[in-house]
Design a protein around this nucleic acid. Structure first.
Length: 128
RNA sequence: AUAGUAGGUCGUCUUAUCGCUUCAAUUUAUUGGAGAGGAAAGUCCGGACACCAAAGAGUAGCAUAAUGGAUAACAUCCAUCCGGCGCAAGCCGAGGACAAGUGCAACAGAAAGCAAGUACAGUUCGGCUGUAGUGAAACCAGGUAAACUCUAUGCGGUGAAAUGCCAUGUAUAUUGAAAUUUUAAUGUGACUCGCAUUAUUUCAAGGGGUAGGCAGCUUGAGCUAUAGAGCAAUUUAUAGUCUAGAUAAAUGAUAAGAACUUUUCGAAGUACAGAAUCCGGCUUACAGACCUACUUUUUUU
RNA sequence: GGCUCCAUAGUUCAAGGGAUAGAAUAAAAGUUUCCUAAACUUUAGAUCCAGGUUCGAAUCCUGGUGGAGUCA
């Protein structure tokens, strides 16, 4: 398992992002929110991912950059949790919804929680 | 020593592991190099660059405003004069014209515009001269232009979502209005002239498609050093040097150590802040540290 | 990335450079009523911030802060 996060795994298409926000389902675990949508794409890895910190909540560009970088780092090191347990292709968008800058350890814990929630939810959907 | 003034510099550093963007090399998946700022910010000025069949003339509008210089250009910078503030070093100033015209002036005052006029004193006895009183301004070519205005100078418009190429996709859908042959419509996003387009075309409403890639994109009015010119801003010559180029947007995370600050001795903290076409300025934000020159006061020699 | 506009009582709006900054409504106190509402009387409350021009600034100018809109 390689802990990389290259260009091909990032969500870049504007069209896909708009579709994701319109049709995607949401899983929340404060201060993170995950929007996901099962859809086909051309990358090798099963997930394409994007990160966002809204300007409305976090005012300074420096803080927004830092939060996005931390989220990216957490995802890079922990994405195997999801990737080993899914079969379809997905697109993801993580949104940060708190004003305060988080600590790395807290963020990591939250991320693990949200993974569990996400996996249980798609299992339910699969059964239904 | 004390209190200050002006100018400048830095604004955490080192190592390891795991990553990101990009360039080069080749063994084609490895190695090596480079990777945020003094303000990258605000978008307040000035340019470069690109496009606009129309970019031309005039009016309007906007901006600037002591004098001289610097510059690609400027509202910036430098020098000098003048005015204001400060004991001083210094700092601040939209600093042309009210002897072209129009307007405005609360309260007070006789009077703030064209005609009037109080008291006292002087007097060559002529409402001649001076003073007082009100007020920011008064018997005067009055005050006021960050009031209209005038004068001088400058300004075509739109901005990288500009623009060019490639790919994908498509529709001359439909409806309404205007014009019938030398005038009319429309455009040239202020107006007039002028110019351009059209006779089956233009405009409006409304609908369909794409919102991907490459170029533009970083070698430039560049930076550093030395010497010359100039009071200075700046400029000339020579030598050296290459210093981010992303696009839902790279420059990060973790660990260890060092430095500084605070401390309840456990520890906590290390400013303002993140490139988006590029330069020259201005403005605003900024913990702390250091350097240089000068001034005030006190003490010692 | 560019462009435009706005800011006055808690709220919605006024105010030619002359200051005592006004109105409605909301708030508080009182009168009336057995009590409440309505009505009436009274009170308090504001020019986004910092400079400048001016004798005098909510108004004119400059810089900042916050908010809204717009362009593909």
């Amino acid at each position: 398992m390689k802990f990389t996060l290259g260009k091909a795994e990032k969500l870049k298409s504007r069209k896909l992002i708009e579709q994701l926000f319109e049709e995607g389902k949401r899983v929340k675990s404060f201060p993170l929110q995950l929007i996901y949508l099962p859809i086909g794409h051309d990358a090798e890895f099963p997930i394409k991912v994007g990160f966002s910190a809204p300007k409305r909540v976090v005012k300074l560009a420096v803080d927004r950059n830092r939060i996005k970088r931390m989220m990216r780092e957490v995802y890079r090191l922990n994405k195997y949790l999801i990737a080993e347990n899914i079969t379809n292709q997905y697109i993801f968008m993580f949104i940060f919804t708190n004003k305060e800058e988080p600590k790395y350890a807290d963020l990591e814990e939250t991320f693990k929680k949200i993974c569990v929630k996400f996996l249980s939810k798609i299992e339910e959907d699969g059964q239904n």
